[in-house]
């Protein structure tokens, strides 16, 4: 049994979850979530929503990664996994820790964003965008500049008295070979995220382990016509849509009927933090320029006042 904290939740797992930071488990208290090996049904008799490889029925959700692992998530409390024949725990683990846990967080009713996050002063800033938008790379680059990692892939948002907070979800960076080489992070890179994929775990320099208020959320865009580089504020409809479309799994917001939840999160982020577009070239050569631009923006927002 291994213990972890994931997105602010205590987790006890029967398998080692590579890339996550192990911690001492609560001795007696029951964990918030348990990850166990077991049988996973191929289908539900009472399915309410069906996807090609997933199904939702009441408080149960099943998803299969064909040929790798199938998972059954129940009530946001238990994640049961069943590796496909001949598949090692290690190979299944990356899908359990990312896909499986992300869906479980959706199931728990948190607004969950597909974003990375870094600490700036006493707050967190989020970077969202679809797979390949450069979220992890930017968080890693900011880590090199002294901004501790708050989250790498998903950000669970909660509202406290109308203010948006993020539960820390610091884990190892997952970076493609090209990014590791370009940023000279080879010294801290470890095992591949999965065999045959040239994406590797990289140790973050520093991580955050306590919840932080969210100061800003940036939707990443590549600089290409018609978008010129810079930080701009979208109109409020686009701000709401940025939050909605950057749910960790947008399809699940509809499946779980959580649209109002994301609307409220968007409103809170627009009112109490700030929603922006960050448009920049995707090339590594321009990373410093992007980081400088962000630093200027944080200074203008007053985020750096209490830092250091």
């Amino acid at each position: 049994m291994a213990s972890y904290r994931i997105s602010g939740l205590s987790v006890r797992s029967e398998i080692a979850l590579h890339g996550l930071m192990a911690c001492d488990g609560p001795e007696n208290a029951a964990p918030d979530v348990t990850i166990v090996r077991g049988e996973v049904p191929d289908a539900f008799d009472d399915a309410q929503v069906l996807g090609p490889n997933w199904a939702l029925a009441q408080d149960r959700f099943r998803i299969g990664i064909p040929g790798v692992v199938s998972m059954l998530l129940t009530g946001g409390r238990e994640l049961r996994f069943c590796p496909a024949p001949g598949v090692s725990d290690e190979e299944a683990a990356i899908f359990v820790a990312s896909t499986g846990f992300g869906i479980l967080l959706h199931q728990r009713g948190h607004p969950l964003l597909h974003a990375s996050a870094a600490r700036v002063g006493d707050a967190a800033v989020l970077f969202c965008g679809p797979s390949g938008a450069g979220k992890s790379t930017l968080a890693a680059a900011l880590g090199e500049r002294g901004h501790a990692l708050v989250a790498d892939d998903f950000c669970a948002i909660s509202l406290r008295e109308g203010r948006p907070w993020i539960a820390p979800d610091a884990r190892k960076h997952k970076l493609w070979r090209q990014a590791i080489d370009a940023m000279a992070l080879g010294g801290r890179s470890g095992a591949p995220v999965r065999n045959r994929i040239e994406k590797y775990f990289v140790d973050p320099r520093e991580i955050v382990e306590t919840p932080l208020p969210v100061a800003a959320i940036y939707a990443l865009r590549e600089q290409r016509p018609p978008h010129s580089p810079g930080i701009t504020a979208p109109n409020i409809v686009d701000a709401a849509l940025i939050v909605r479309t950057n749910a960790y799994r947008p399809r699940l917001v509809r499946a779980f009927g959580q649209q109002p939840l994301y609307f409220k999160a968007a409103a809170a982020l627009a009112q109490r933090a700030g929603v922006y577009y960050l448009t920049r070239p995707l090339s590594f050569a321009d990373m410093d320029k992007t980081a400088d631009r962000l630093a200027d923006h944080w200074a203008s927002l007053g985020l750096l006042d209490r830092a250091a």
Binding site: N235, I236, V237, A240, R244, Q259, F263, A266, A267, Q271
Partner: peptide, 22 residues
């Protein structure tokens, strides 16, 4: 419709239709 004030503006959403208005 759900609505929320953001500065001078209002953000709105119809849960039934998934439509957003500002």
């Amino acid at each position: 419709w759900l609505s929320a004030r953001v500065g001078d503006e209002i953000m709105m959403m119809s849960a039934a239709h998934g439509v957003y208005l500002g």
